[in-house]
Design a protein around this nucleic acid. Structure first.
Length: 207
DNA sequence: CCCATTGGGATTTTAT
DNA sequence: AATAAAATCCCAATGG
C-alpha cells in the first residue's frame, strides 16, 4: 500500500545515518551532502504537480522560472539566526511585485502570511528557540520542542486572528498538507519537518 | 492501557 | 458570485 512511502522511509534512514555520521566525525557543516541525498525524495511530487506553485509566492520573481539545478543550496548555515529583517516585510518589497498584489493587508500587522512563512520567521527568532529550532547539520530541517510546540501554534492562531485557539495538532495538519504541494516534508523523526529546497531558497531570498 | 504524535477526510475560510 | 487554494476541525491509527 505504500510503495513510495517505503522509498521515502529508506531515504529518511539514510539521511539520519548521515546526520549521525557527520555529527560524530566532523561536527561541522556538511549540509550539501544532505541536499544531494535528499533530492530524490521529491520524486513523489516532482513528476506532476511541480511548477504550478512557483509563482504563487508572494516574493518570487515572475520571470525566474527555473533557477534550480543549482548544485549547492543557497544555504549553508542551518542555524541562521543573524537576521534582523522581518519576513513579513517581503510582502511589500518594492521590486518583487509582479502580477500579484501583495499590498493588500487585512490587518495592521503582517496581513497575508502563509504558515510556512510564519514558521520560518519563528525559526529565525532566537527568542523562540525553545519552541522550534533548526536541527544542526541538516538543511531546512527543523524540530518542535515537545513541551512548547503548542506555544508556536498559539502564536500562529493569534497571528491569523483565529477565534478558537490553534493547537499543534491542527497546525501540524497544515504542515502535512504542505507535503502534497512539496513545500514542507515530514521527516521520520518526532516533531521534525523539512522545508524543500525551493521553499527554503524562496524564504531566504525574502528574509 | 495511557498518552503523545501522526494521518487524513470533511468542512470552513480566504483569495482571486 | 463562483471557484480554487489554504487552513481548520475532528477523529482514527500508530507507537513508545
Amino acid at each position: 500500500m505504500n510503495s513510495f512511502q517505503e522509498t521515502q522511509s529508506d531515504l529518511e534512514v539514510i539521511l539520519e545515518f548521515l546526520e549521525e555520521y557527520y555529527r560524530q566525525h566532523t561536527g561541522g557543516n556538511v549540509d550539501k551532502m544532505y541536499c544531494t541525498a535528499v533530492e530524490p525524495v521529491d520524486e513523489r511530487s516532482a513528476p506532476v504537480d511541480k511548477g504550478y506553485c512557483e509563482q504563487c509566492w508572494t516574493c518570487s520573481e515572475p520571470t525566474n522560472v527555473k533557477p534550480a539545478l543549482q548544485p549547492l543550496l543557497a544555504h549553508d548555515a542551518p542555524p541562521a539566526l543573524n537576521t534582523t529583517t522581518t519576513l513579513s516585510e517581503c510582502g511589500s518589497l518594492p521590486n518583487f511585485v509582479s502580477t500579484r498584489q501583495p499590498t493588500k493587508h487585512t490587518a495592521g500587522s503582517g496581513g497575508k502570511v502563509r504558515l510556512f512563512h510564519f514558521l520560518f520567521e519563528v525559526l529565525e527568532d532566537p527568542n523562540m528557540a525553545h519552541c522550534v529550532s533548526w536541527v544542526p547539520a541538516a538543511a531546512g530541517v527543523f524540530r518542535f520542542s515537545s513541551t512548547n510546540k503548542d506555544k508556536v501554534a498559539a502564536l500562529w492562531g493569534q497571528r491569523k486572528g483565529n477565534k478558537r485557539p490553534m493547537t499543534y495538532q491542527k497546525m501540524s495538519r497544515a504542515l502535512r498538507n504542505y507535503a502534497r504541494s512539496g513545500e514542507i516534508f515530514k521527516v521520520k523523526k518526532k516533531l521534525t519537518y523539512q522545508f524543500s529546497r525551493e521553499t527554503l531558497m524562496l524564504l531566504q531570498k525574502c528574509q
